[in-house]
């Protein structure tokens, strides 16, 4: 379980935060923006004018601006302070795609926090490697509302991509101050290998022992329809039924399991590079899933029996992504 981060507030937070797991306190920084500094100059000029003309209303206006400036700082600070930030499950992507790290921002105050800006702030090295700009994400939070946003980050290699430092900042309401804070979330995105390779499937294996009808429906004998459930092969959808405006149905077969594959490390042994091998296996898995095969995977350190379905596919792909990577957990 990842921890949540609460952005620190000057006043001690009330006990109600204690209800949600453990919270890491994180400091909020604040500095005037360039317009803020410019206003300081303007205010000083106005003060000179007020003193020179001894004009009370000019004094008042100047002091009003000064004090709005100060109050604005509090408002900007308050936009961030007290926010509770936590990560959520990261959807895996293929290498080269944009990873989206979901971040949940929870505003527990009775005041809205408009125009929060989140941007990935990677180390120099990662930035150089990515060669792509990190797009900021804008979030508007109403009072007592939470929202999930995805922070995009480019991926290059397969493996585990950790979420870099994220900067959350706000200039609301007047743009005279910018408050920001750094968020370190222990999130990582599983990056599957990029599907590639031109090899054909290895030879199918014979049916296994009885008692597995449930998982290997995929072949010949038509055995009726059932409702579609997420994870069913698209190939088996009864498109004709759909055309008749019936609900999404899936054709069911009772087969003998001749379409069973075992994708093994040896099958790609001829490829020169580990990454190329993984890419080939990745492509095969996607193909097999798409074509309704029942497939298993066998690579050093990981083996899975033949099966089918989105979950199975994801497990296979994750195994490829984690190949050769030692992870702490």
């Amino acid at each position: 379980m990842t921890e949540s981060i609460v952005l620190e507030r000057l006043s001690p937070a009330r006990g109600d935060h204690a209800s949600v797991s453990s919270l890491i306190r994180q400091r909020v920084y604040i500095l005037p923006t360039r317009p803020g500094f410019l206003l300081c100059v303007a205010m000083f000029t106005m003060l000179l004018g007020a003193v020179n003309y001894n004009n009370s209303m000019a004094y008042i206006l100047t002091f009003l601006l000064v004090s709005v400036f100060m109050v604005c700082m509090l408002h900007t600070y308050r936009n961030l302070a007290g926010l509770v930030i936590s990560g959520a499950k990261v959807k895996p992507v293929f290498a080269g795609e944009m990873a989206g790290f979901p971040v949940i921002i929870d505003n527990r105050d009775g005041t809205p926090c408009p125009a929060l800006k989140l941007v990935c702030h990677p180390s120099r090295k990662a930035k150089r490697a990515a060669q792509q700009s990190y797009q900021p994400v804008m979030v508007n939070l109403q009072a007592s509302q939470w929202q999930q946003v995805e922070i995009p980050a480019p991926t290059i290699n397969r493996g585990l991509l950790p979420l870099e430092r994220v900067i959350i900042s706000s200039c609301f309401p007047l743009g005279l101050f910018r408050a920001w804070s750094y968020i370190h979330l222990e999130e990582q995105c599983v990056v599957y290998p990029k599907p590639a390779g031109i090899d054909q499937f290895p030879a199918p294996v014979a049916a296994q022992e009885q008692g597995q009808e449930g998982v290997k429906s995929g072949a010949n004998d038509f055995a009726g329809f059932r409702q579609y459930h997420p994870g069913d092969s698209i190939r088996n959808i009864a498109w004709k039924a759909l055309a008749r405006e019936q609900p999404l149905l899936v054709k069911r077969f009772s087969g003998d399991g001749s379409h069973t594959l075992m994708l093994a490390w040896e099958d790609v042994g001829h490829l020169p590079d580990i990454e190329l091998r993984l890419s080939q296996l990745c492509r095969w898995i996607l193909l097999a899933e798409n074509q309704g095969w029942i497939y298993g995977l066998e690579i050093p350190g990981f083996q899975i029996d033949p099966a089918q379905g989105t979950l199975h596919k994801n497990r296979c792909l994750e195994a490829l992504a984690r190949y050769g990577i030692h992870h702490a957990d």
Partner: peptide, 9 residues
């Protein structure tokens, strides 16, 4: 419901 969805547990 919200807690069950938001929490990572």
């Amino acid at each position: 419901l919200e807690y069950s969805r938001k929490s990572n547990e």
